[in-house]
Simulated assay, not measured.
Amino acid sequence: MYKLLGSLKSYLKWQDIQTDNAVFRLHNSFTTVLLLTCSLIITATQYVGQPISCIVNGVPPHVVNTFCWIHSTFTMPDAFRRQVGREVAHPGVANDFGDEDAKKYYTYYQWVCFVLFFQAMACYTPKFLWNKFEGGLMRMIVMGLNITICTREEKEAKRDALLDYLIKHVKRHKMYAIRYWACEVLCFVNIVVQMYLMNRFFDGEFLSYGTNIMKLSDVPQEQRIDPMVYVFPRVTKCTFHKYGASGSLQKHDSLCILPLNIVNEKTYVFIWFWFWILLVLLIGLMIFRACIIFIPKFRPRLLNARNRMIPMEICRPLSRRLDIGDWWLIYMLGRNLDPVIYKDVMSEFAKQVEPSKHDRAK
């Protein structure tokens, strides 16, 4: 288990060249590692040990355990409101009196580890697509100028090559920016869709799962219904039918303990809180991107905030003369270049893109 979890640390390694922002990495790298870790832990708990243990007379225990694990177990929802030890033996466990419609079946637990794995793959998809679209462009034009330990001649040669690239490729980076922003939108869509599907997966209980847990502290002890026990019951019931010696049908009512749900309930508490935090961050990111695209006056301030050594007299002509794709490229360059080199490159680049007073007079 330690070796399996240790292999995930490569997803969290520091990037010397950054082509995305922190929220994008939280969605693609951290959330992927989180979901894969949860999947591995639940898989180990599920397949190493006893994920279900049923009590029944007249039938071999391993037969009932296998049957109930495959075909699901159930509880009686109204029994969660009854007093344990007096009215019911365990929360949700009561006589069904043959009322099939009143039963709440649980069929998800054998699928949780697989669902978490596919959720992790869905979270990694935007990063995979962006890496393909980006193609190492930022690393190519930075040329190691993010590390200032080099000779003056080498530094000047690389700086001139970078400036030459920017001048020759003006207005050729619009798709570069659009593809990255499309990947950010895909992150937002992915989280919304995942939360909706998880809510369907847990019969409409996921979206309010964390809220119900937080509200539990305000409810008197005798009136409490633990939402974790309701969504992930630890004790359930299962009905097993078999033929007797004379061919008559026999019904065996068993009580099943699900120790795996102890892990599941804690896992999804953390996932619930993290997904809501991530959703809020992504909504903020969408608003921020909309400001960049639709409010051009916002761009010079961002360039100046990226590197305070670049005055607004340089940021304004760069933002005015460049299209959105070129502006995004130089904005991301500020995250990867040495600040002094970045200032020199942007100062010279501004002179190249801003026409002289003589040209404007014509």
Score class of each variant (00 low, 15 high):
D160H: 15
K127N: 06
A120S: 03
K251S: 12
H241P: 00
S248M: 12
N261L: 08
K132E: 08
L258A: 05
V219Y: 04
P227F: 01
K251Q: 11
R152P: 08
K127M: 12
W181H: 07
Q223M: 11
R200C: 14
N131K: 12
G144K: 05
D164A: 05
H252M: 01
L162K: 07
Y180G: 06
M175R: 14
D226I: 01
G244W: 05
R224Q: 15
N199R: 07
V229F: 15
L166T: 02
K132V: 04
F232S: 14
G247R: 02
M140P: 06
M175E: 10
C238L: 00
E154P: 09
L216E: 09
L163S: 14
T151S: 14
K242Y: 07
M140Y: 07
K127W: 08
L137H: 11
D226W: 05
M214I: 09
M138Q: 06
E156N: 06
H169E: 04
L216V: 00
I149T: 08
M195E: 03
K237H: 03
I167N: 15
A245Y: 13
Y176H: 08
A177P: 01
V193W: 14
I191G: 12
V142F: 06
C150F: 10
F133A: 04
H169C: 05
T211D: 09
F201E: 10
I225C: 09
Q194Y: 02
R139G: 09
G135D: 03
L129S: 04
F133H: 09
T125M: 05
L197G: 05
E184K: 11
D218Q: 11
S217Q: 11
N199H: 04
I167Y: 13
T239K: 01
K127A: 12
L260G: 15
G210P: 01
F118H: 09
G244A: 06
P233N: 02
P259L: 09
M214A: 13
N131H: 09
L166C: 08
H169F: 06
P259Y: 12
V189H: 07
F128T: 06
Y196K: 04
L258K: 14
F240C: 00
I257E: 14
M214K: 13
E153N: 15
K251T: 10
F240P: 00
E134P: 02
L249D: 09
C187D: 06
G135V: 02
C183N: 01
T211I: 06
K158S: 11
M121D: 02
G135I: 01
R224G: 14
D164G: 13
M175L: 13
C150V: 03
L162G: 01
I225W: 04
F201I: 02
E184F: 13
L129I: 02
Q194L: 11
L207P: 12
Y180I: 02
F206G: 00
P233I: 00
K155Y: 08
M143Q: 15
F188R: 03
P220A: 08
L186P: 15
